[in-house]
Design a protein around this nucleic acid. Sequence first.
RNA 1: GGGGAAGUGGCGGAAUGGCAGACGCGCACGGUUCAGGUCCGUGUGCCCGAGAGGGCGUGAGGGUUCAACUCCCUCCUUCCCCACCA
Length: 945
Amino acid sequence: MSEAAETADIPPFRYTAELAGEIEARWQDYWESHGTFNAPNPVGELADPEHPRAGAPKLHVQDMFPYPSGAGLHVGHPLGYIATDCYTRYKRMTGYNVLHPMGFDAFGLPAEQYAVQTGTHPRVTTETNIERYRQQLRRLGLAYDNRRSFATTDPEYYRWTQWIFLQIFNSWYDPQLRKARPIDELIAEFTSGRRPTPDGRPWSSLSPVEQRRIIDDHRLAYVSEAPVNWCPGLGTVLANEEVTPEGRSERGNFPVFKRNLKQWMMRITAYADRLLDDLDKLEWPEPIKLMQRNWIGRSTGAHIDFPTEVAPIRVFTTRPDTVFGATYMVLAPEHELVDRLVPDVWPEGTKPVWTGGHATPREAVDAYRKLAATKTDVERQAETKEKTGVFTGAYAVNPVTGGRIPIFVADYVLAGYGTGAIMAVPAQDERDWAFAEVFDLPIVRTVQPPADFAGKAYVGDGPAINSAAPDRGLDLNGLSVAEAKAKIIDWLEANGCGRGATTYRLRDWLFSRQRYWGEPFPIVYDEHGLPVALPESMLPVELPEVADFSPRTYDPDDADTDPETPLSRAKDWVEVELDLGDGPKRYVRDTNTMPNWAGSCWYELRYLDPDNDRCFVDPVNERYWMGPQFPGDCGGVDLYVGGVEHAVLHLLYARFWHKVLYDLGYVSSFEPFRKLFNQGYIQAYAYRDARGVLVPAAEVVERDGRYFHGDQEVFQEYGKMGKSLKNVVTPDEMCEAYGADTFRVYEMSMGPLDVSRPWETRAVVGSYRFLQRVWRLVVDEESGALRVVDAPADEETRRLLHRTIDGVRTDMENLRFNTAIAKLIELTNRVTRLSATPREVAEPLVLMLSPFAPHLAEELWQRLGYEGSLAYADFPIADPALLTAETVTYPVQVSGKVRARIDVPAEASEDEVRTAALAAVAGHLAGREPRKVIVVPGRMVSVVV
RNA sequence: GGGGAAGUGGCGGAAUGGCAGACGCGCACGGUUCAGGUCCGUGUGCCCGAGAGGGCGUGAGGGUUCAACUCCCUCCUUCCCCACCA
């Protein structure tokens, strides 16, 4: 087919991809040069009292910003961006001052790894990628306030990331007030003696270094020698969340080892309760809230101390009511008391199975620990229910029964949760039951199980049994689990052997990485090796130039190695002489960088005041865009849209930082994102040939339900769109073939926004035809003349228009764009059948279409005789009088089956409808008298015989 | 193992107690065209029937109701999250 043949028959004024491209470029230029989507701030450089929306009610909508990868965007990426664009364009037309910004989360490993491979500086790669993203997004006509755009890698941005880090570093958590406070206030409490020192010595008797260590231990950001996930293959430590269940690195799939290393930690656990409780204030999808609740994992119960010969063992239990059934104890292999407890010889009464075949307890414990340490998590996984362990040779005393109970070491008890020790109650815990069976330990039921519970643990509710110690003044028998818990906690507290307690699954956040392409810490170390904050005037601490961007990596299996960061090799940068208040001294910089998450922990705030160089956001601007809307409101972004993969980490970290900033008085909102919406994913078909090799999806053709690549039959599968599946479709291709407006309409009409669905390029043409029909309603394809007439529309068209307006408004408010578009298509299809288009329909149709197809709408709006942009035009309002049809068709059911339809005037009374209905179905009644006739006004009639 | 979400035509989906399948893709037929494509029109859940019409139908089974895709119970399947958390 020749170019000439292709275009020869096409009318000169048809809405083609070429025309769409021309219109789109023109309006994108217009919007940019007019700053059409700039949103005015109340104060500061972005304030604009002349703006049409200055002082209007605000709406702050935000997308989860992208990491600008080298591959560029595919059609799945902008789904959420288009959705928020449609929503904000709509809300702008209903009078809101809309803030809709976009930025880039640009620190990260891919640019760094590319740098390692090619020597290209990550900044160069990053900036190239960002530029590409900007162009791709611009082409989609997304209505951003571009003055507010930034990348987390901009020194002017990460200056404030570092500044916030310092606020966190210079804070402590006051559990009484349940909030973070400046560290100076803690120092003042110690100095005045209001707060005792940890070991009771007077504050003034401590050396300055001792004082600093105590203070440092209270900071919300602190350096800790803690067990971390060391990954020699990557040369870096990883957060727990970055380690797979198999005990390998999420990136690279290298082995990960638990090592004690000095690392920055964030005391997010101090906020566990607030992070949990404030979920109730948020309009988030329940599944996401649940995931956060599970992640925080609050359990309430008690700490109980079990005396031993060396020191009491403290356990955490959620079932203190079952303490009478505690017939043995288990310590995690890493528990600090293990070494002190182990005696020289096996005591009297040691069962052979307890010893693991070893001659002494010491030997047995050492061997077991060694085994546990070398076992990877894969192996532990494989033997999930197989309980292993070994007797320590030591006994503890059950504080309520006074009985001696053996102490075991077993890896089913985790060092990192609770106290790393448990009281084992086999009768009421399935794991303990399994262990007790293996090691032949006594089982004492303390909750009466139902009849069919012989031979297994019973974890449910029931009356307590075998739970009395009259000589100790304790009797739980007959009480329910809840009652027994309350009573035993009172008893434990009164007798000094325990107290009510709460523990969390959430751990403190490991906050340093041994990478190059991240924010440097604004911290130096002095001659004592203690951290010292750099003053604000020294921010930002910029990344030094280095020759080699990679951390030192090792044999992936060699755990006995130490991190060596890229920054540590920049000797001139690392060693500095500074005057930090007590004269010029030599300091050493921190050579770690912050994790990827840092930049996204507060970016929602920087959009509000992106150029402010006095503070990270002006409080007035923050209060306007994010502040509480009513008493008790948490405030925050009004709508935050992004993928469900950030359900826990990003959203938890960002909430944490936001709460610290709130406590310190910098923001008026105590949650960053009031409402969250998770968009689904666009997935795509991929094809493999008979050998299992992927073939490019674009080259596959379907014939009779089978798929072929050339002559070869290939087989369809379904998955994420990506290079690896050879099924990428880019927005640029779609813009080229159909125009950006068609692409936008297609993405929004595919289905509900929160559901994942497959991309089908061949279906895009439906949206294209729709826009062509709308174009034709307004513009004559042959002459280019306006087809719009001022004569009024017929009554039914007018009523359909108003029902459409009403329905579209509801759909837009609820982000149901697919049904909104369906309604617009229905209206369009009706008007298409008219010989000319009434202006009273054309104008509202164009306005309603404009959020989805903004370029086309702007063009038609202009052709309809308006000047400038329709971005601030009023969205159509339905006339309530026209929302019903003139006549209503009622289906008439007899015994649940539709037997007739009747047309009655909309204003007909219920009796008139009933009479008409009965007449219509008389034949089906066969003379029987209806028992009941139900008339649902405007809906249907149901006759019961 | 625990938790969550979801199962509707050939496909994406619509209907949240009231006409199941809106809207779109695909497909079929017709118009336009030398032809293909485009565009326009009509039809399109399945079965019986020439037709009028009738029967069946929202993963399976049961229940509530005049009326169930929708609410309740049991089960099956798929996807996602967590996973020895005391």
